[in-house]
Design a protein around this nucleic acid. Structure first.
Lengths: 193, 193
DNA sequence: GACTTTTTTGACCTTTCGGTAAAAAGAAGC
DNA sequence: GCTTCTTTTTACCGAAAGGTCAAAAAAGTC
């Protein structure tokens, strides 16, 4: 027989789903409770505040994204195939885990533009996001070291540009994976094998 | 002596500024009123609802963006210089009208992902945004007709990809204009002159 | 300057929100 | 089956939200 899903997990899953559609401010705790099949007060039994619920949901989302992109064993033997694999994994995630991607992006603007003094609650998320961007930077740096990417390509900015490009709004049925990968790789001026 | 700014204009400007930082749901009418130097009730004198205030502010924003990008006289003699001009204007707007760009993007995800039945208020904005994307599509189609852009480039998807790429998160001091323009033009596989 | 119109404010409304505390229900242990 | 612990619900709180209405103030007209 199937294992009963723990209540906390149900709450988190409902939180992801509704935060993905309506964003942090547009979502009430009551909506999450209704979707999870519990009463609102129970949410505060598991999560001290709405903020902390959002933080946990969002962090699980970006952890899943990062794991999906970078988590595979390093068995690619060339930089080029490694880069391609990362881009394809990224795009694949957007297509197949669209809800999580929406969760990440729905409040992304608010998170990234948040300031230390005015939006304290967003700082951990902002740092987490910057850490994700850093991994893309590292990949570009590796490409430069292996002379697959020209030195003239600015690492930080291009990492952000790539992360910005691959999202729910751009990855859709009007674009196939190959087109996007080529777009980005040409943009990176990657030297083809 | 300087002309007195009409109250409605002051309200709209405050609305843009605060919606740009906090988004629709994260902003209260009282905050806008405080910033504009009026009482909350006055806002409802000029705008029937918060929704309609947001609609007008946001629409002014995207109108300004579109005007800035496409509004110049068509004096470019080649498609390539026209395309470059459009891209540079787009990037220039993001850099120099950052607040308006933030206004457009802060709720963009919510607008684009909105459904007819669940987020009726966002439909006019969604349509307006799609109309903006259409103009980018037209530009790409023109490039194909003039054989500057390969037929294999999918028009709709690439238009969205470009609009997605050029934003507050990606346009920053880590990237200069030339790099972004090259990134996109290479991505488009534009045939250089 | 009296009257009319427009703009602005103060006070208030109802609803919804995030969150709390105590009681009730369920589960576990002996 | 009684006790203890954990989970869940009920009822409620204060604050804040969008919005309204009537009064007051300002501006305009003759």
């Amino acid at each position: 027989m199937t294992k009963k899903i723990p209540t906390k997990r149900k709450i988190l899953d409902s939180a992801k789903k509704i935060f993905a559609c309506k964003g942090f401010d547009g979502t009430s705790v009551e909506e999450i409770a209704n979707d999870a099949g519990v009463k609102k007060a129970l949410i505060f039994y598991y999560f001290p505040t709405k903020d902390s619920l959002f933080l946990e949901a969002w962090t699980e989302g970006i952890n899943e994204l990062e794991q999906h992109i970078f988590g595979h064993k390093e068995k690619e033997n060339t930089y080029l195939s490694k880069l391609k694999h990362v881009l394809i994994s990224y795009i694949d995630f957007v297509m197949n885990r669209k809800e999580i991607m929406k969760l990440i992006e729905m409040d992304k603007m608010r998170i990234i533009e948040s300031h230390n003094e005015t939006d304290v609650k967003m700082q951990p998320l902002k740092q987490r996001y910057n850490s994700f961007i850093k991994r893309i930077e590292n990949l570009i740096e590796e490409g430069k070291q292996k002379e697959c990417i020209p030195e003239t390509i600015p690492t930080k900015g291009t990492a952000k540009l790539i992360a910005q490009s691959i999202g729910v709004n751009s990855i859709n049925e009007d674009l196939n994976v190959d087109t996007i990968v080529k777009f980005i790789m040409k943009g990176l001026s990657v030297k083809e094998e």
